[in-house]
Simulated scan of single mutants.
Amino acid sequence: MRHLGRVGYEQTWARMRDFTDTRDALTRDEIWMLEHPPVYTQGQAGRAEHILAPGDIPVVQSDRGGQVTYHGPGQLVTYFLLDLHRLGFGIRSLVSRIEQAMIDLLAGYGIAAHADPAAPGVYVDHAGGLPGRAKIGSLGLRVRRGCSYHGLSLNVAMDLEPFARINPCGQRGLRMTQISELGGPDRVATVAADLEPHLLARLRPAAPSA
């Protein structure tokens, strides 16, 4: 488990690719927790029409799954450099485990959240007393050579305005929310420390079949 502070997106992405390309069967898995300076990242399936008005925020074409999202200070980003074969679960199981870790964390803050099998991520209903649902946590992963990289972003206490310049995750009109607005902590370091045990509990290796 590494806590990297605030680091650039592209340099971190390069480190993830290098880690994945050079690891072997004995390489220990790692989880990186960090923040990024303001940046839009476009997933492999991303469509240009979902980037509405980026302004002076750079747009980076990434190799993760999913559509466009925003990263910025006050958002916890967590990257999962895991050997899925060794852990014994596939990408769908990994996504569900990460989502549930975020849901477990939020429940501890008194925030009721849920996942949506049709749209990966974590959502809150009636956030701020407004109708409908809002997204609080996003997911975008890549698997190469049986190993994962990229990961989750969880909104803690950030400027949400840049999300209005895109269709977040390719969903028009999707509202975003964050932990600090729903009664939870407003420090990324606090949320990172609180999320860590939930991730470790959910990412235990699958039991071998009989």
Rank of each mutant, 00 (worst) to 15 (best):
K135V: 00
Q100N: 15
H85Y: 01
H198T: 06
G43M: 03
A107Y: 08
G121A: 04
W32G: 03
L182R: 06
W13H: 03
E99L: 09
T69H: 02
R142W: 05
V39D: 12
R6N: 02
G146P: 03
L174N: 01
H71A: 10
D194V: 13
A53F: 08
V124D: 05
A118Y: 08
R2G: 10
L199S: 02
T20D: 02
A48T: 13
G110H: 07
A107R: 14
A113S: 15
I111K: 09
L139N: 01
D21L: 03
R145W: 04
S62C: 07
A207K: 13
G170V: 03
R187Y: 07
R86N: 14
I111P: 07
T12M: 10
D116K: 05
D186A: 15
F19E: 08
I51N: 00
V59P: 04
R64W: 10
Y40T: 11
R17K: 13
R28S: 15
T27K: 08
A206W: 03
L26F: 10
L84V: 04
L26M: 10
G121N: 00
Y40P: 01
I98A: 07
H126T: 02
L94T: 07
D83I: 08
R97Y: 05
L52I: 15
A210Q: 13
F80L: 06
R2I: 13
V7Q: 03
M176N: 06
A48G: 06
G151C: 01
A113D: 09
